[in-house]
């Protein structure tokens, strides 16, 4: 039996690859779970009750009131 081709018989190719090239096959499998985890884990985490932390402040908080510009000398 000839080596199966991925594009024509994908399932048979995957079965063949898992037997003949197990390290590459399972590496690709494990590695491809990474992006999947990236998409599926945050909603799962939130569904289990974890709350997102507050975003890190990137500047000092601006005062809400009108800005008072000092004039003259303060010690007078």
């Amino acid at each position: 039996m000839s080596t199966p081709l991925f594009w024509s018989t994908p399932i048979r190719y995957l079965r063949w690859a898992s037997h003949e090239k197990p390290a590459i096959f399972y590496s690709l499998l494990i590695g491809s779970m990474g992006p999947v985890a990236l998409v599926t884990l945050p909603p799962l985490r939130r569904a289990l009750g974890d709350v997102d932390p507050e975003p890190i402040p990137l500047s000092y908080p601006l005062p809400k009131g009108p800005r008072v510009i000092p004039s003259g000398y303060e010690d007078k």
Binding site: Y26, S27, L28, I30, A37, L41, R45, D52
Partner: peptide, 19 residues
């Protein structure tokens, strides 16, 4: 090496996904 590279891709994704 392929197995380690697979974990190099997977593990940061899990850690980031779990915050």
């Amino acid at each position: 090496l392929p197995l380690v590279i697979a974990y190099v891709v997977l593990l940061p994704c899990i850690v980031y996904g779990l915050d």
